Simulated assay, not measured.
Amino acid sequence: MAKHDTQLSDLFHALADPTRRQILTRLAQGPAPVTELAGPTGLRLPTVMRHLSVLQEAGLIATSKDGRVRTCAIVPEALTPMQAWLEEQRSIWEARLDRLDDYVMNLMKERDK
């Protein structure tokens, strides 16, 4: 994996904001119109639209328009690159911790001799 993966950066950026995470949590229940997503945030509609734009640019949501109603839906497979990166990091750290555990156990055995 490249050191600077823009797709991964976009995903982390999109998820860094609590309002955007709240929107995604709601969309995990099913598609919703923008006005419904804006309600619980307490933010004005243009601000919510900017948050939705960030989520859409990261590929986390898709929008459709029917008349005057814009509906948003989550795109769960967009999290795959992040999931793969996190799994890679977990493997690295588990291996490091296993080596540290072995080292400490060897030190303790030597001390007990």
Rank of each mutant, 00 (worst) to 15 (best):
M1D: 05
D5N: 15
D10T: 02
F12T: 13
A14V: 10
P18I: 00
R21H: 01
R21D: 01
R26M: 04
L27E: 11
L27A: 04
Q29T: 14
P33H: 04
P33Q: 04
P33M: 00
V34L: 15
E36K: 07
G39E: 14
T41V: 00
L43R: 10
L43M: 09
M49D: 12
R50K: 12
H51Q: 11
L52I: 08
L52Q: 07
L55Y: 05
E57V: 08
G59W: 09
I61V: 15
T71I: 13
T71E: 10
C72A: 15
I74E: 13
V75L: 09
V75M: 10
V75I: 07
E77W: 11
L79E: 03
L79Q: 03
T80L: 13
P81F: 05
W85Q: 14
W85K: 14
W85R: 14
L86M: 15
E87Y: 05
Q89P: 06
Q89H: 07
Q89M: 09
I92N: 08
I92M: 07
I92E: 11
W93T: 00
W93I: 00
R96K: 14
L97G: 02
D98N: 05
D101Y: 06
D102T: 07
V104P: 05
N106T: 12
N106E: 15
L107V: 13
M108W: 10
K109H: 15
K109Y: 09
E110V: 13
R111E: 09
K113M: 13
K113E: 14
